[in-house]
Protein backbone atom coordinates (compact mmCIF):
# COMPACT_ATOMS: atom_id res chain seq x y z
CA UNK A 1 0.00 0.00 0.00
CA UNK A 2 1.22 3.47 -0.82
CA UNK A 3 1.94 5.72 2.10
CA UNK A 4 0.35 9.12 2.43
CA UNK A 5 3.68 10.83 1.82
CA UNK A 6 3.98 9.13 -1.56
CA UNK A 7 0.44 10.08 -2.38
CA UNK A 8 1.23 13.75 -1.83
CA UNK A 9 4.41 13.52 -3.80
CA UNK A 10 3.06 11.58 -6.77
CA UNK A 11 0.47 13.77 -8.32
CA UNK A 12 2.08 14.63 -11.65
CA UNK A 13 -1.02 16.32 -13.00
CA UNK A 14 -1.25 18.93 -10.26
CA UNK A 15 2.50 19.56 -10.37
CA UNK A 16 2.48 20.20 -14.09
CA UNK A 17 -0.64 22.33 -13.87
CA UNK A 18 0.95 24.58 -11.26
CA UNK A 19 4.19 25.03 -13.13
CA UNK A 20 2.43 25.59 -16.46
CA UNK A 21 1.81 29.38 -16.23
CA UNK A 22 5.42 30.26 -15.46
CA UNK A 23 6.73 27.68 -17.92
CA UNK A 24 4.52 29.12 -20.65
CA UNK A 25 5.70 32.63 -19.81
CA UNK A 26 9.37 31.62 -19.87
CA UNK A 27 8.94 29.85 -23.21
CA UNK A 28 7.18 32.82 -24.83
CA UNK A 29 9.42 35.54 -23.44
CA UNK A 30 12.79 33.79 -23.15
CA UNK A 31 13.06 30.59 -25.16
CA UNK A 32 11.20 31.90 -28.20
CA UNK A 33 13.19 35.18 -28.26
CA UNK A 34 16.40 33.19 -28.02
CA UNK A 35 15.45 31.05 -31.01
CA UNK A 36 14.13 34.05 -32.90
CA UNK A 37 17.31 36.04 -32.26
CA UNK A 38 19.44 33.17 -33.53
CA UNK A 39 17.34 33.03 -36.68
CA UNK A 40 17.35 36.82 -37.07
CA UNK A 41 21.15 36.72 -37.06
CA UNK A 42 21.12 34.98 -40.44
CA UNK A 43 18.92 37.60 -42.11
CA UNK A 44 19.38 41.26 -42.94
CA UNK A 45 16.51 42.79 -41.00
CA UNK A 46 17.22 46.44 -40.25
CA UNK A 47 14.05 47.45 -38.42
CA UNK A 48 10.60 46.06 -37.61
CA UNK A 49 8.58 45.24 -40.71
CA UNK A 50 11.52 45.52 -43.11
CA UNK A 51 11.73 42.74 -45.71
CA UNK A 52 14.10 39.99 -44.63
CA UNK A 53 16.62 38.33 -46.89
CA UNK A 54 18.65 35.28 -45.90
CA UNK A 55 22.31 36.23 -45.87
CA UNK A 56 23.86 33.27 -44.08
CA UNK A 57 26.83 34.06 -41.91
CA UNK A 58 27.41 37.57 -43.30
CA UNK A 59 26.33 39.25 -40.07
CA UNK A 60 28.66 37.10 -38.05
CA UNK A 61 31.64 37.69 -40.31
CA UNK A 62 30.93 41.43 -40.35
CA UNK A 63 30.79 41.47 -36.53
CA UNK A 64 34.02 39.54 -36.14
CA UNK A 65 35.73 42.00 -38.48
CA UNK A 66 34.27 45.06 -36.74
CA UNK A 67 36.93 46.75 -34.58
CA UNK A 68 34.21 48.51 -32.57
CA UNK A 69 32.80 45.14 -31.55
CA UNK A 70 36.16 44.04 -30.19
CA UNK A 71 36.63 47.36 -28.41
CA UNK A 72 33.22 46.92 -26.77
CA UNK A 73 34.24 43.39 -25.72
CA UNK A 74 37.43 44.74 -24.18
CA UNK A 75 35.50 47.42 -22.28
CA UNK A 76 33.03 44.80 -21.08
CA UNK A 77 35.95 42.73 -19.85
CA UNK A 78 37.45 45.66 -17.92
CA UNK A 79 34.02 46.65 -16.58
CA UNK A 80 33.18 43.13 -15.45
CA UNK A 81 36.52 42.15 -13.93
CA UNK A 82 36.77 45.40 -11.93
CA UNK A 83 33.18 45.16 -10.78
CA UNK A 84 33.50 41.56 -9.62
CA UNK A 85 36.83 42.14 -7.86
CA UNK A 86 35.72 45.26 -5.99
CA UNK A 87 32.24 43.96 -5.18
CA UNK A 88 33.51 40.68 -3.73
CA UNK A 89 36.40 42.23 -1.77
CA UNK A 90 34.26 45.18 -0.71
CA UNK A 91 31.40 42.99 0.46
CA UNK A 92 33.82 40.84 2.46
CA UNK A 93 35.24 43.95 4.11
CA UNK A 94 31.82 45.44 4.86
CA UNK A 95 30.56 42.12 6.19
CA UNK A 96 33.56 41.76 8.52
CA UNK A 97 32.97 45.26 9.88
CA UNK A 98 29.25 44.69 10.41
CA UNK A 99 29.85 41.26 11.93
CA UNK A 100 31.29 42.94 15.04
CA UNK A 101 29.13 43.38 18.12
CA UNK A 102 27.99 46.99 18.24
CA UNK A 103 24.92 48.97 19.29
CA UNK A 104 22.11 49.01 16.73
CA UNK A 105 23.67 46.24 14.64
CA UNK A 106 20.36 44.58 13.68
CA UNK A 107 19.06 47.87 12.31
CA UNK A 108 22.25 48.64 10.39
CA UNK A 109 22.53 45.12 8.99
CA UNK A 110 19.04 45.36 7.53
CA UNK A 111 19.30 48.90 6.16
CA UNK A 112 22.81 48.71 4.73
CA UNK A 113 21.22 47.32 1.54
CA UNK A 114 19.56 50.70 0.87
CA UNK A 115 21.88 51.70 -2.04
CA UNK A 116 20.68 48.59 -3.85
CA UNK A 117 17.05 49.46 -3.18
CA UNK A 118 17.39 52.84 -4.93
CA UNK A 119 15.96 52.87 -8.48
CA UNK A 120 18.65 53.12 -11.15
CA UNK A 121 17.47 56.52 -12.38
CA UNK A 122 17.80 57.89 -8.84
CA UNK A 123 21.29 56.42 -8.67
CA UNK A 124 22.16 58.19 -11.92
CA UNK A 125 20.70 61.56 -10.90
CA UNK A 126 22.33 61.35 -7.47
CA UNK A 127 25.87 60.68 -8.70
CA UNK A 128 25.63 63.04 -11.67
CA UNK A 129 24.79 65.76 -9.15
CA UNK A 130 27.42 64.78 -6.58
CA UNK A 131 30.19 64.51 -9.19
CA UNK A 132 29.15 67.60 -11.19
CA UNK A 133 32.24 69.67 -12.14
CA UNK A 134 30.67 73.03 -11.17
CA UNK A 135 28.22 72.35 -8.35
CA UNK A 136 29.26 68.88 -7.22
CA UNK A 137 30.22 68.38 -3.61
CA UNK A 138 33.05 65.94 -4.38
CA UNK A 139 34.92 68.47 -6.49
CA UNK A 140 34.32 71.10 -3.82
CA UNK A 141 35.82 68.84 -1.14
CA UNK A 142 38.79 67.85 -3.28
CA UNK A 143 39.45 71.47 -4.15
CA UNK A 144 39.14 72.83 -0.64
CA UNK A 145 41.34 69.97 0.57
CA UNK A 146 44.00 71.21 -1.86
CA UNK A 147 44.07 67.90 -3.76
CA UNK A 148 43.14 69.34 -7.15
CA UNK A 149 43.59 72.71 -8.81
CA UNK A 150 40.74 72.51 -11.32
CA UNK A 151 37.55 70.41 -11.06
CA UNK A 152 37.62 66.85 -12.36
CA UNK A 153 35.12 65.93 -15.05
CA UNK A 154 34.29 62.53 -13.60
CA UNK A 155 31.58 61.59 -16.07
CA UNK A 156 32.72 63.47 -19.15
CA UNK A 157 36.45 62.98 -19.48
CA UNK A 158 37.81 59.86 -21.21
CA UNK A 159 40.31 58.92 -18.51
CA UNK A 160 37.91 59.29 -15.56
CA UNK A 161 34.60 58.02 -16.89
CA UNK A 162 35.15 54.25 -16.72
CA UNK A 163 36.60 54.20 -13.18
CA UNK A 164 33.76 56.50 -12.07
CA UNK A 165 30.98 54.36 -13.51
CA UNK A 166 32.59 51.24 -12.06
CA UNK A 167 32.81 52.94 -8.66
CA UNK A 168 29.12 53.88 -8.76
CA UNK A 169 28.05 50.36 -9.64
CA UNK A 170 30.29 48.88 -6.94
CA UNK A 171 28.82 51.33 -4.42
CA UNK A 172 25.39 50.06 -5.29
CA UNK A 173 26.02 46.31 -5.31
CA UNK A 174 28.52 45.89 -2.46
CA UNK A 175 25.89 46.05 0.33
CA UNK A 176 23.77 43.46 -1.48
CA UNK A 177 26.58 40.92 -1.47
CA UNK A 178 27.75 42.00 1.99
CA UNK A 179 24.41 40.84 3.40
CA UNK A 180 25.01 37.37 1.94
CA UNK A 181 28.59 37.21 3.23
CA UNK A 182 27.39 38.43 6.63
CA UNK A 183 24.92 35.55 6.86
CA UNK A 184 27.74 33.16 6.04
CA UNK A 185 29.99 34.70 8.69
CA UNK A 186 27.32 34.05 11.27
CA UNK A 187 27.42 30.32 10.57
CA UNK A 188 30.97 30.12 11.99
CA UNK A 189 30.68 28.25 15.33
CA UNK A 190 31.50 30.53 18.29
CA UNK A 191 33.33 27.67 20.07
CA UNK A 192 35.79 27.41 17.20
CA UNK A 193 36.70 31.10 17.40
CA UNK A 194 36.96 30.97 21.20
CA UNK A 195 39.20 27.90 21.10
CA UNK A 196 41.48 29.65 18.60
CA UNK A 197 41.54 32.71 20.84
CA UNK A 198 42.53 30.59 23.83
CA UNK A 199 45.31 29.01 21.79
CA UNK A 200 46.59 32.53 21.10
CA UNK A 201 45.93 32.59 17.35
CA UNK A 202 46.36 36.08 15.88
CA UNK A 203 43.62 37.96 14.02
CA UNK A 204 45.21 37.13 10.66
CA UNK A 205 45.61 33.46 11.51
CA UNK A 206 41.99 33.21 12.65
CA UNK A 207 40.88 34.85 9.42
CA UNK A 208 42.96 32.58 7.16
CA UNK A 209 42.31 29.31 8.96
CA UNK A 210 38.75 29.65 10.25
CA UNK A 211 36.82 32.50 8.63
CA UNK A 212 37.96 32.13 5.04
CA UNK A 213 37.53 28.35 4.72
CA UNK A 214 34.01 28.58 6.19
CA UNK A 215 32.77 31.27 3.83
CA UNK A 216 34.65 30.15 0.71
CA UNK A 217 31.65 28.39 -0.90
CA UNK A 218 29.56 31.55 -0.46
CA UNK A 219 32.35 33.70 -1.88
CA UNK A 220 32.51 31.54 -4.99
CA UNK A 221 28.74 31.74 -5.45
CA UNK A 222 28.68 35.54 -5.17
CA UNK A 223 31.69 35.83 -7.49
CA UNK A 224 29.73 34.02 -10.19
CA UNK A 225 26.50 35.93 -9.55
CA UNK A 226 28.37 39.23 -9.58
CA UNK A 227 30.04 38.26 -12.85
CA UNK A 228 26.79 37.28 -14.57
CA UNK A 229 24.95 40.39 -13.39
CA UNK A 230 27.76 42.87 -14.00
CA UNK A 231 28.38 41.83 -17.58
CA UNK A 232 24.69 42.27 -18.43
CA UNK A 233 24.30 45.72 -16.89
CA UNK A 234 22.82 48.28 -19.25
CA UNK A 235 20.64 50.74 -17.31
CA UNK A 236 23.28 52.13 -14.95
CA UNK A 237 25.85 52.87 -17.67
CA UNK A 238 23.28 54.17 -20.13
CA UNK A 239 21.63 56.55 -17.68
CA UNK A 240 24.98 57.91 -16.46
CA UNK A 241 26.84 58.32 -19.75
CA UNK A 242 24.85 56.94 -22.73
CA UNK A 243 28.03 55.00 -23.49
CA UNK A 244 30.06 58.18 -23.86
CA UNK A 245 32.07 60.28 -23.95
CA UNK A 246 33.23 59.05 -27.38
CA UNK A 247 32.26 55.41 -26.72
CA UNK A 248 34.54 55.25 -23.69
CA UNK A 249 31.87 53.43 -21.67
CA UNK A 250 30.29 51.55 -24.57
CA UNK A 251 30.33 48.03 -23.21
CA UNK A 252 28.86 45.16 -25.20
CA UNK A 253 25.19 45.58 -24.09
CA UNK A 254 25.41 49.32 -24.88
CA UNK A 255 26.96 48.64 -28.28
CA UNK A 256 24.27 46.07 -29.14
CA UNK A 257 21.57 48.56 -28.13
CA UNK A 258 23.09 51.33 -30.24
CA UNK A 259 23.41 49.05 -33.28
CA UNK A 260 19.76 48.02 -32.98
CA UNK A 261 17.97 51.20 -32.01
CA UNK A 262 20.25 53.98 -33.29
CA UNK A 263 21.84 52.44 -36.41
CA UNK A 264 18.79 50.23 -37.12
CA UNK A 265 20.74 47.04 -37.67
CA UNK A 266 18.44 44.62 -35.86
CA UNK A 267 19.96 41.49 -37.38
CA UNK A 268 23.51 42.45 -36.59
CA UNK A 269 22.53 43.36 -33.01
CA UNK A 270 20.68 40.04 -32.64
CA UNK A 271 23.72 38.14 -33.90
CA UNK A 272 25.92 39.98 -31.40
CA UNK A 273 23.60 39.18 -28.54
CA UNK A 274 23.64 35.51 -29.56
CA UNK A 275 27.45 35.55 -29.41
CA UNK A 276 27.24 37.13 -25.97
CA UNK A 277 24.67 34.59 -24.80
CA UNK A 278 26.76 31.61 -25.94
CA UNK A 279 29.71 33.03 -24.03
CA UNK A 280 27.61 33.52 -20.91
CA UNK A 281 26.12 30.05 -21.17
CA UNK A 282 29.51 28.60 -20.35
CA UNK A 283 29.59 30.61 -17.16
CA UNK A 284 25.98 29.77 -16.38
CA UNK A 285 26.85 26.07 -16.48
CA UNK A 286 29.76 26.73 -14.12
CA UNK A 287 27.36 28.63 -11.88
CA UNK A 288 24.89 25.73 -11.76
CA UNK A 289 27.69 23.29 -11.00
CA UNK A 290 28.89 25.46 -8.10
CA UNK A 291 25.38 25.72 -6.72
CA UNK A 292 24.68 22.01 -6.99
CA UNK A 293 28.01 21.09 -5.47
CA UNK A 294 26.74 22.90 -2.37
CA UNK A 295 23.81 20.48 -2.50
CA UNK A 296 21.28 23.21 -3.16
CA UNK A 297 18.93 21.36 -5.50
CA UNK A 298 15.40 20.89 -4.20
Amino acid sequence: MRTLRQKIAEDPFLGLLLVAPLLFWVIVTLVYPLLYASQLGFYNVRYVGAPARFIGLSNYSRILGDPNFWKACLRSLIWTVCNVAFQVLGSLLVALVLNQRFRGRTLIRNWIILPWVLPTVVLAIMWTWILDPTHGVVNYLLKSGGLIASPLKFLSSPQWVMPTVIFINVWRWTPYFAIIVLAALQTIPKELMEAALVDGASVMRRFWHITLPTIRPVLSVITLISFLWSINIFDTIWLLTRGGPLDFTTTLPIYIYKRAFQDFRFSEAAAMSVIMFLFLLGFAVAYLRTLFREGAEG
Binding site: V26, T29, L30, Y32, P33, L34, Y36, A37, L40, V48, L228, I231, N232, F234, P253, I256, Y257, A260, F266, A269, A270, S273, V274, M276, F277, L280, F283, A284, Y287
Partner: peptide, 16 residues
Protein backbone atom coordinates in the same frame (compact mmCIF):
# COMPACT_ATOMS: atom_id res chain seq x y z
CA UNK B 1 16.89 32.19 -17.16
CA UNK B 2 18.13 35.05 -15.06
CA UNK B 3 21.56 35.01 -16.68
CA UNK B 4 20.04 35.83 -20.08
CA UNK B 5 21.38 39.14 -21.36
CA UNK B 6 18.37 41.46 -21.19
CA UNK B 7 19.44 42.94 -24.50
CA UNK B 8 19.17 39.50 -26.18
CA UNK B 9 15.52 39.24 -25.22
CA UNK B 10 14.76 42.87 -26.03
CA UNK B 11 15.03 42.78 -29.83
CA UNK B 12 12.89 39.66 -30.40
CA UNK B 13 10.32 40.80 -27.81
CA UNK B 14 10.14 44.19 -29.48
CA UNK B 15 9.38 42.53 -32.81
CA UNK B 16 6.96 40.02 -31.24
Amino acid sequence: SYVFPKILVLIPLYIL
